[in-house]
């Protein structure tokens, strides 16, 4: 069966790939582009471990087809740090010990980045509801929420 040819942008770079029409964007990222930072926890949009940003919108990569990436701009966890410098959210997650096993962490970071782009000064409740689509079974969320609030403050220059 013919595979689809897709031209897209991933983390600012032009990317071309071939994929089966039923392959999800997550499959493409992981299996074709070998960007394995996005994780598959459920393949049904319930866990958020595959969170990516598509044209500025937070999306579960498991709920989007690879062919739908045509012409769009995708940001993944691999593009979050700039050069040799971590994003403030990444730094705060480390400082606050906001991860234990770390498998949900890429999804949380991408989702939190998307939140702070829309709302640079979220309340704890706003953080909790925005991140309610990302499951973490290790931390109980406490340190994650603290890290996001602290990163937000730092990014505001406070």
């Amino acid at each position: 069966m013919a595979r689809a040819h897709v031209i897209t942008t991933v983390n600012g770079d032009p990317v071309e790939f071939l994929c089966d029409t039923e392959q999800t964007l997550l499959d493409v990222l992981r299996d074709e582009l070998h960007l394995t930072g996005s994780k598959e926890g459920c393949a049904s949009g319930d866990c958020g471990a595959c969170s990516v940003i598509v044209d500025g919108r937070l999306v579960c990569a498991c709920l989007m087809l690879g062919v739908e990436a045509q012409g769009h701009s995708i940001e993944t966890i691999e593009g979050m740090a700039g050069g040799d410098r971590l994003h403030p959210l990444q730094t705060k997650f480390l400082e606050h010990a906001a991860l234990q096993c770390g498998v949900c962490t890429p999804g949380f970071l991408v989702a939190a980045k998307s939140l702070l782009e829309r709302n640079p000064d979220p309340t704890e409740t706003e953080v909790r509801y925005w991140l309610a689509g990302n499951l973490c079974r290790c931390t109980g969320y406490d340190k994650i929420v603290r890290a996001v609030l602290d990163a937000a403050q730092e990014m505001r220059g406070g």
Binding site: L35, T36, G37, M80, A81, Q90, L94, G102, T105, L109
Partner: peptide, 12 residues
């Protein structure tokens, strides 16, 4: 192992 886990490098 923190940096590997906040950058997506860590291999699960």
């Amino acid at each position: 192992d923190g940096v590997d886990k906040v950058t997506g490098r860590a291999r699960f």
